[in-house]
Write a protein that binds this DNA or RNA. Structure first.
Lengths: 164, 164
DNA sequence: TATTGTTATACTCTATAACTATA
DNA sequence: TATAGTTATAGAGTATAACAATA
């Protein structure tokens, strides 16, 4: 690691000292190739997190509830855009949360083809529950992480998504 | 990339959405809850990257080749550990790359139940090709990223994986 | 005709469980 | 009995394409 990288503004003290991981699984000369491998490994983390979800609400529908809860009522298209998946996939996830009474489809007075998606009180309740579980799981796993590093990771992942 | 394109991207990359609508993927007070959302968004990036793969080699088998190419010969168990998925899943991915002639299964003189997995020259050739595509796709997407930020992201994702 | 959603189909990835072969 | 690996099965996630309804 170069001195410039060590003193990078985002790094902070916590990023220094890799503690001499002598096994060094993943020493790449190409940082882009390395990043590709790191992203693949994120899948493991996501699978671990999704194990804290109830059987009745898989990750896809849970993401729908999360976005409806955060951004409020919206149509299917922008929801699909936020999820970053095809409209057909979004439609199925929405059908799931509607079938469970966690979301309702209100008529859109401006366009008969569309419906306004709105989270129900029951959906809000479930969402709070899910958020608690996710947070608890992450807090447990990252108990020895400095808060600033979590913030840095959040910032970088946000930038990563918008770069695509 | 042109300066105009870079400017356009940077404008849309700001942490806060310029339109105040759904651009911001999550202003959270809870950094753990925020991280959960960020990780979900990584899936979109991974799907985008995997579109550069050939039809004959999906992401799972490609990951097998990548690890065998990087760490050398190994048995199925440690490979499964590196992939972070179940042994049965690893077995199927390996069967795929073996069927395509990209990997061979050599007898293990120390344990008749095991076989040594080794990437073939054809597999190495494909791996180089895949690596080039992945790197090119990432380099294009992250052209306006400071190098040290990529390094920081790699470091944090590595730590994230080991925290689970 | 174009746009918004929905549904049918197929493919990938994953885990669980049952099974085989060897230690 | 225990362990390494394979295979069968099922469930979740996704995309493409065909379709219906409305603009």
């Amino acid at each position: 690691m170069t001195a410039a990288a060590r003193t990078a503004r985002t790094a902070g003290t916590a990023l220094e000292g890799p503690h001499g991981d002598h096994s060094d699984h993943g020493a790449h000369d190409d940082p882009y190739a390395e990043l590709a491998g790191r992203l693949a490994a994120v899948g493991m983390v996501k699978r671990e997190l999704s194990r804290s979800l109830p059987q009745t609400c898989p990750a896809g529908p849970a993401a729908v509830l999360s976005l409806l809860g955060r951004y409020g009522d919206m149509r299917l298209s922008p929801l699909s855009e936020l999820l970053g998946v095809d409209l057909s996939v979004t439609s199925r996830h929405v059908a799931h949360v509607v079938a469970h009474g966690w979301t309702e489809r209100l008529p859109d007075p401006r366009d008969g083809r569309c419906r306004i998606l709105r989270i129900t009180p029951a959906g809000r309740e479930l969402l709070d529950e899910l958020g608690s579980r996710y947070s608890a799981a992450l807090r447990t796993a990252l108990v020895d992480w400095p808060t600033e590093d979590i913030g840095t990771l959040n910032t970088l992942l946000t930038r990563l998504r918008s770069s695509f």
